[in-house]
């Protein structure tokens, strides 16, 4: 294994994920991005919820918090507020973030605390055996949608933008170089950054949706995605049915802890003056 991985892993591989699962590819891109960012592991906290992808924190040699289902962001909020100088990365699955953690997610977007949320979207609840999530495409089959889901899905990136996140990007496990770059940019952004990563679950999603092999899902992701730079030059008809990847939104807004400290400073000036 290349040194870049050895440096950040805990030396407890093999991981628990199934053959062809995209979680390992995300972890690999994260490791390379983390190495390039040159952060101090002692001052970095990895937080995750519950689900297959949330097991990622068990493999990373950081301060790691494997929390409860949907609750990663509140824990991360407490960590970051206590130690604003820490680098905080939050890993969540699609059900974890968008269903049970949906309320925490929109409020974290609104608060704009300086941390990076990586949503690994494999379109399904994998750990419990393939039930549809709020990100499962309408019509897809799942163990609780045997005739196809009649539940409309979220576009989690649009939701994040609407809720006030100041950096929103989408990557995928086919375009690994792009994903690595997005993780770096997300961390370097001051404020709450969100990356949705389109990922693969051959066992629980692929097999039910005519993509049984790992490469079927890889090819699906390759074909369905289109980089924002290209999409921007295309007409609405041309990009119909495509999923746009890249940095979708970036804006500047006051960061929560900076706003808090500005309030504290103001009070001190009032006291002394």
């Amino acid at each position: 294994m290349r040194e870049v991985y050895q440096k950040i892993f805990r030396d407890n591989l093999p991981h628990i994920w199934c053959a062809g699962c995209g979680n390992g590819i995300v972890m690999s891109a994260f490791a390379r991005a983390y190495d390039k960012l040159g952060l101090d592991k002692d001052k970095t906290v990895g937080v995750s919820g519950i689900g297959c992808s949330s097991r990622i924190t068990g493999y990373l040699d950081l301060n790691t918090l494997h929390t409860a289902h949907g609750r990663a962001l509140p824990f991360a909020t407490g960590v970051k507020m206590t130690r604003p100088e820490f680098a905080v990365f939050v890993f969540m699955g699609d059900g974890d973030c968008a269903a049970i953690g949906g309320n925490h997610f929109i409020h974290a977007c609104r608060r704009n605390m300086d941390m990076t949320a990586i949503i690994i979207n494999n379109y399904i609840y994998g750990m419990t055996g393939g039930q549809f999530s709020p990100l499962t495409p309408f019509g897809s089959k799942a163990s609780t949608a045997p005739y196809g889901s009649v539940d409309r899905n979220f576009d989690i990136c649009s939701l994040a933008i609407g809720a006030g996140a100041t950096f929103v990007a989408r990557g995928d496990v086919y375009h690994t170089k792009q994903l690595e770059k997005l993780i770096i940019e997300a961390h370097e952004h001051k404020g709450f950054s969100v990356i949705e990563v389109l990922s693969t679950c051959p066992i629980s999603y692929g097999r039910r949706n005519k993509m049984p092999k790992p490469m079927d899902l890889m090819n699906y992701i390759k074909d369905v995605t289109i980089a924002k730079e290209r999409a921007d030059k295309m007409t609405a008809e041309e990009i119909a049915g495509k999923i746009v990847t890249g940095v979708l939104h970036q804006s500047a807004a006051v960061e929560y802890n900076e706003a808090y400290m500005a309030m504290v400073e103001k009070l001190e000036v009032g006291k002394n003056g």
């Binding site: 929390t67 962001l73 509140p74 824990f75 960590v79 970051k80 130690r83 925490h104 808090y260």
Partner: peptide
């Protein structure tokens, strides 16, 4: 000290656990 009003009670206790891990 740090005060934060969270979006619900679940988030509130989550935040204090995170804060305690970070030393508060």
């Amino acid at each position: 000290g740090k005060f934060i009003q969270m979006e619900d009670e679940i988030a509130s206790i989550g935040a204090i656990i995170g804060a305690s891990c970070a030393g508060a």
